[in-house]
Simulated scan of single mutants.
Amino acid sequence: MTQSLSVFLRQERDTVNTNLIAFVQSMNAPQFLKDAIIYSIKAGGKRLRPILLLAVIEAFGKDRDLGFAPACALEMIHTYSLIHDDLPAMDDDDLRRGQPTNHKMFGEATATLAGDALLTYSFECLANEDQLSPILRTQLVSGLAHAAGPAGMVGGQSDDLSAEGRVLTLEELESIHQRKTGRLLAFAVEAGAKIAGAAYEQQKALMSYARYIGLAFQIRDDILDVEGEEGTLGKSVGSDVTNEKSTYPKLLGLEETKIKLDHYIEKALHSLQEANVPFPRRLQELAYYIVERDY
């Protein structure tokens, strides 16, 4: 990762975190519930989804401030999903980003409610963003609900849990990942493009870019689960094997998986070139970051 990209990502994470905490603090909710939510937000994370949304707006030379509410709403959805994924009924994880998971700190009931609060409040924040037109807000609320719901993340997670203990085909595996991981990444790109006023053909090419970086993101996760370092990842290495999950390395072998990762990034960059955005550099760098990240 270049120093300029490293600085950019750190600055963007700080900006997203500041806005996220401000949104949560403004909740009309019991303080204990807000404390549980802020605990998971302050646990850190890449903030790739909101950063990607803001980067798409900037790629068109538009005012990135228009994207803060949608970006934070998107990250609220992602954070809620992680809180719920860690629960004993799901992945039953004790650590998230090197710290005790939410339910280990606050109990299962509060963790469940913290996730519920983030899920619903995300749509409230998005629907109330008066910097965006009512039509655009409606489109974004609908798009985020579709990406996060049964046709997207929730459905992908359901199929992922059902698939434990059996060997999937590559087509089945990619279908799960396109929904479980890819749909929220795709929404980040779609939302940024709509807010920026991108033309239809540009949006179409950017959605192709989003699809490929979504698959690449999951492939990199699978590789890190094999050869990553637990201290850097902030979670146990080898959990996919323990949970008997199908992964790219399991289906293709590690070397073929790395080849596929490079192939998808090449296709993502080709799609970005076709989108013909005025300032593509950050979107190019974010694609390479997905390949090179170590957590």
Rank of each mutant, 00 (worst) to 15 (best):
E255G: 03
D93F: 00
K104H: 14
D91C: 08
G197Y: 05
G115I: 03
L272K: 07
V154S: 09
D225Q: 13
T15L: 13
I135V: 11
P88S: 09
L170E: 12
G238R: 05
K250L: 12
I219H: 09
G152Y: 03
S133F: 01
D93K: 10
I259F: 04
A36N: 08
V237I: 13
E12Q: 15
A198K: 09
Q131K: 03
E274K: 06
V277H: 14
D262F: 07
D160Y: 00
M90Q: 08
A275I: 00
Q178F: 09
H263K: 09
R282N: 12
D92H: 12
T110G: 05
L74F: 12
L224P: 04
Q99M: 14
A188F: 01
F123W: 12
I77S: 14
G61M: 06
R13I: 06
L20F: 07
R282Y: 08
I195F: 00
T257I: 02
R47K: 13
L161V: 07
I176E: 10
I223D: 15
S40R: 05
P50W: 08
G228D: 06
D222Q: 07
C72A: 10
R179P: 04
E129G: 01
L136A: 06
A147G: 14
K180M: 04
S239I: 11
H270T: 15
R49Y: 11
A73L: 01
E256F: 12
G149F: 11
D294M: 04
S236W: 09
A151P: 03
G253R: 04
Q218H: 05
T112K: 10
T101C: 13
L113M: 10
D14F: 02
L144F: 01
